[in-house]
Every structure is written in C-alpha cells, then in structure tokens.
C-alpha cells in the first residue's frame, strides 16, 4: 500500500510523535510498496530526520519475505505559517495530486487530528483519529480506536481511500533522529498563501519541560484532594519522596496545578516505574494516561472506585493520612546513616 507519514519538523514532540507512529507501524505484517515521509518545516531545512519503522522491526512478513524498512523518499515542504492548518491542507492536497497515496499517517496532536479529518473530507476518503491498531491484511484497512470515554475499544473498517489516520497518544520509545544522507529527497519551495481571517497571531511557548513524562516516580492527585491547602501539603510530600506531581482533570480545573501536569487521554500519557494515584476515581479517560506504568498504587476512600481495576496495589483510606505516613517512612530511611540500600535519591 502506498503510504506517507506526515510530520512537522519543528514540533517539540517530534520524537515522541514519531515513536507513537512507529509503535503502530511496527505491528503491521505488511510490506509497503512505497513509503514516504512528508516533512513540513519552517525556517531552517532539517538536516536530521526522525527514524520511521515502515515494517515489522523483527522477523519476516506474513508471506515470508523480508521487510523493507527503507523510506523511498523524504519530501520536504517549507511553510510560512506553521500554525495555520489551511496552509498545510493546501500543500497536502497538492502533494496528493502529484503523488497519490492510499494511506496517510498523521501524528497524535491536535494538528495531526485536524489535518487527517479535513484532508480525507476534501479527497472523499476515510479518516479515523486516535488509532491504536491498524490491520492491512484485508482489502480494506481495519482500525482500532477507543470509544465510550476510553471504556471500550471499537474496530472499524475504513471504506474509501485515501485512508487518513492520526495515531493514538501512547507510552512509547521516542524515535531516534538519523542523518538520512542515503535517502532521496525532494524539496518544495516556500509559497505564501494569503489568509484573511487571522489579524494577529502570537505564540507563547510552554514553560520548560516539567520532567514529569520522564520521571520514575509520579504522584497523581485527584478530586479526593479537597482544598488548595491540602494540595500544598501534598506537593511538599512529593518533594520529600522524590516524586513528580501530576493531576486528574478536576484538580487542574480548580487551577491548583498547572495544565501541563494533567494526566489522561487529553493530557500526558506516562509510564513511570511507580505511579501512585491518590484520590483519583479512575475514569476511562484518566486511566488511559497511566495504564502503561510498571507499577500502580491506588489510594482511595471508596473501595469500589474504578481506579482499583488498573492498580497493582490498593489502599482503601484517606490519601493525606497514608501519604503523610509514607513521607515519614521514606524520610526516616533517607536520614538513617549507613542504610544506603534503602536510600531514595531524588533526581
């Protein structure tokens, strides 16, 4: 199947986004007759490229032949307006006109979702967002995506090509950047489309990365936290035990913690070594954000809370009481001289 992966070179999450795409592609038992990367960029032309796994990483294909991992070509497209989706859409329509593809794979962010949907509409194709699994062994592609607030997974058959997919956010190994000297490239010059609906545009970059996504120990607080004061106490505990703090939606909506610490389907997807979910009820949308953690501890006053369904260890009790006690224990272990084997060092 003729396939192109569409990526944005300037995206701060390029490696993660490519990793998510790789996670989906590497499960395919299909060879691609033509595999392209369409890479959009602003200002400087990229010199290194995200590594895309267009075939099973290990082992042969379903028919026994060896998979060809190589990209056929990288098409580099210069952009003037990196935040105006219409300019991408015009380019994508042009590219599809010149180099028709059957399958287009977009990243998991909002732009990827928008472009997949709108391009498929313009080309009378099919689109699906949050795709967790893809099966190309039948004539029409089958996709899996979460539905019913992440409580169920649905399987769809996509009816009409081109098939435009944006992949699901998921815990994954970030893609490597490679020089790509040996890969053929085509460069498209900047063209300046006019847009009359935007009068003014200011981009405010996020504060520096919280480190939350890469932390080994994460403490996540939910609506069981009843006040800002409690929140401050718990922040102190997190510092002592060396945990990064995350939160579910109700806490973020109270403005007790920054939006960039929201965990869940519409926030961060994390997979720390230890995840302590305290006072989190565990809706499908939230659980999506932590289910790939190595070890999950849930503390909740309600023994029937759904969070216990994904937890390894559960404690039914008051989150503040338990966490205060845990802080004392870890602090004592830290302070006890000569007990290096039980010391906890914060990163």
């Amino acid at each position: 199947m003729k396939t192109a992966v569409v990526l944005f070179a300037d995206s701060p999450s390029l490696n993660r986004q490519t990793g998510e795409i790789n996670a989906m592609l590497s499960n395919l038992k299909t060879n691609f007759s033509n595999a392209e990367l369409w890479l959009f960029y602003k200002d400087a032309q990229p010199e290194i490229f995200p590594e895309i796994h267009f075939a099973p990483l290990y082992g042969a294909l379903a028919d026994g032949t060896l998979a060809d991992k190589a990209l056929s070509i990288i098409r580099l497209v210069a952009m003037e307006h990196e935040h105006v989706s219409e300019s991408y859409l015009q380019w994508l329509q042009h590219l599809m006109d010149q180099y028709p593809m059957e399958l287009l794979v977009f990243p998991s962010d909002g732009l990827g979702a928008e472009l997949a949907t709108r391009l498929a509409f313009r080309l009378n194709g099919s689109s699906c967002l949050q795709v967790e699994g893809l099966d190309l062994t039948s004539q029409k592609p089958k996709v899996k995506k979460p539905v019913y607030g992440n409580n169920l997974t649905a399987e769809f058959v996509l009816e009409y090509p081109p098939y435009c997919l944006s992949v699901a956010k998921q815990a994954c190994a970030p893609a490597k950047m490679i020089p790509g000297e040996s890969i053929k490239k085509e460069i498209f010059p900047l063209h300046k489309p006019g847009f009359d609906w935007v009068k003014e545009m200011v981009m405010i970059p996020d504060k520096p990365d919280t480190g939350l996504a890469d932390s080994d120990l994460v403490l996540i607080l939910g609506q069981g936290v009843k006040s800002k004061e409690t929140m401050d106490v718990l922040q102190g505990i997190a510092n002592t035990i060396g945990a990064q703090l995350g939160a579910s939606r109700p806490v973020v909506m109270n403005a007790w913690i920054d939006m960039n610490r929201l965990i869940g389907a519409s926030g961060l997807i994390i997979s720390p070594k230890i995840c302590i979910a305290a006072g989190v009820s565990g809706t499908g949308v939230f659980s999506m954000g932590i289910k790939c953690s190595e070890f999950i501890v849930a503390i909740n006053i309600d023994s029937k809370a759904p969070i216990f369904q994904i937890a390894d260890i559960g404690i039914v009790g008051d989150l503040q009481d338990v966490l205060c006690e845990l802080e004392k224990i870890i602090k004592a272990e830290k302070d006890m001289p000569g007990s290096a084997e039980s010391r906890i060092e914060t990163k």
Binding site: P12, S13, L111, V198, V202, M203, I204, P205
Partner: peptide, 9 residues
Amino acid sequence: IDGGTLVQT
C-alpha cells in the same frame, strides 16, 4: 498547540 499556546485575533 503542541509545545505552546497560540493567541490569535
């Protein structure tokens, strides 16, 4: 947007 906030008139 990915990595930031956009304010548009």
